[in-house]
Design a protein around this nucleic acid. Structure first.
Lengths: 230, 230
DNA sequence: TCAAAAGTGTTGCTTATACACCCATGT
DNA sequence: ACATGGGTGTATAAGCAACACTTTTGA
């Protein structure tokens, strides 16, 4: 058997970690401490280890970079990138994962050891490697997922108002939604959210009922972007 | 840097090649000539080579197994599988690709060198490795794609009737569709199909107009499965 | 003339959208 | 009182499923 059938390579797992923060869709980036691309922003990630599944590696990297428990976050595989020249260090294939999380204070943030920072997706150009492309794929996946699945709740904390949820949609899609119709769509979908019974006082205006994420994952009927079709 | 950060592995590309044949959704399987799983059915695939992109590898494997030009087929990446124990030969991560093609005679079929054969998806249990799971993922992706994209035409030849196209949907979804409504949906979607001007005589009944694939890829409005929501 | 598949018209139900309107709070 | 966001009701429009009906062929 020819040698070329036995190409050995390393496998990286890169993370597109998204949150909604300050009314903007933001992505967690790190500043590279080593060459190549030293000092440049990049997506967090690392190499697959022995005896480790891809998802396990994604959860581990997520924990290492943010201190968060990846088991409790929404995490899905995005795409594999394997262009020969994509990493100057050699032949490295990357499997990208998408993580969605609420705007929590990062446990490792503030420590000198961590260079993780939130960057608005709209300003996150010029990432290292092919991470611009990976980020674009992750953002588009998230946008699309909101249409057909209930995971907008993954951007919210344990308790949230319908207004919070609507804000997630508006920020992720970059599009205004009718608050009244949105309300009914969400409450009319069994298992999307369930009332906690509590209320939250806004700075101004009527108190809003609080909800937590329901058991459903598919969103039927879907909540469609109107400008979806180019 | 610890050694475990430098795990070397091989990367395989496996293909879920689907067609509609004899009114059934069928998948191309090969019979394994070597251990492990010698003599057992499996999805076609092979190892990534030096200097080769993942998609290039998929196109190459497709050509080697079927003799077909992968550049002319619908081909998309499905998912990466990396469970440590998935391949007895060692640490092998597999990236699965989905290919859709019309029911053409395979150029390599019939030759002793090739063990490629069409197997109805409904009967394709017990494949080698984790290929049952990969196949299931590919089939579900194809079913879902038909709802929102125009690629049902990828299952048809250069020229086809609306009835042919409807048969693709019915077979892939395992669901009957109203011929009259289907007709209007397809013809009412700009760029889905364009008339060639020709007609085809069926064995019995009125001749049907012939069409070829149009330029559109997104299907707006979508053609939805009714039983979609479990 | 009949069977079978292609294709058109129409009806009525189901949804979505747009927007009028009311509710509950802080200032 | 009024500004502000939360929430309900409703009319109009659009979409789709169901099905009656016509067309075009071979036998």
């Amino acid at each position: 058997m020819p040698k070329r059938d036995h190409l050995l390579l390393r496998l990286a797992v890169d993370l597109v970690i998204l949150t909604v923060r300050d009314d903007a869709l933001q992505v967690l980036t790190i500043t590279r401490a080593n060459e190549p691309f030293r000092g440049q922003a990049a997506l967090p990630g690392g190499f697959l280890r022995e005896g480790e599944d891809l998802l396990q590696a994604a959860i581990r990297e997520l924990h290492e970079e943010t201190g968060l428990d990846g088991h409790r976050l929404y995490l899905e595989q995005l795409h594999a990138y394997g262009e020969p020249g994509r990493d100057p260090r050699g032949r490295i294939v990357s499997v990208a994962y998408l993580a969605l999380m609420p705007d929590l204070p990062l446990p490792t943030a503030g420590s000198d050891a961590s260079s993780a920072a939130w960057t608005p997706v709209a300003k996150a150009a010029g990432l290292a490697f092919d991470h611009d492309e990976i980020l674009a794929g992750g953002v588009e996946r998230a946008r699309s997922r909101l249409e057909f699945q209930t995971l907008a709740t993954a951007f919210c904390g344990d308790e949230f108002t319908i207004g919070d949820l609507r804000n997630v949609y508006e920020v992720v899609w970059g599009q205004r939604l009718d608050p009244r119709n949105f309300n009914r769509k969400v409450l009319g979908t069994d298992g999307f959210v369930e009332a906690t019974g509590g209320k939250r006082m806004p700075e101004v205006g009527r108190p809003a009922a609080l909800y937590r994420a329901g058991g459903a994952t598919v969103l039927n009927p879907p909540i469609l972007r109107t400008d979806k079709h180019g």
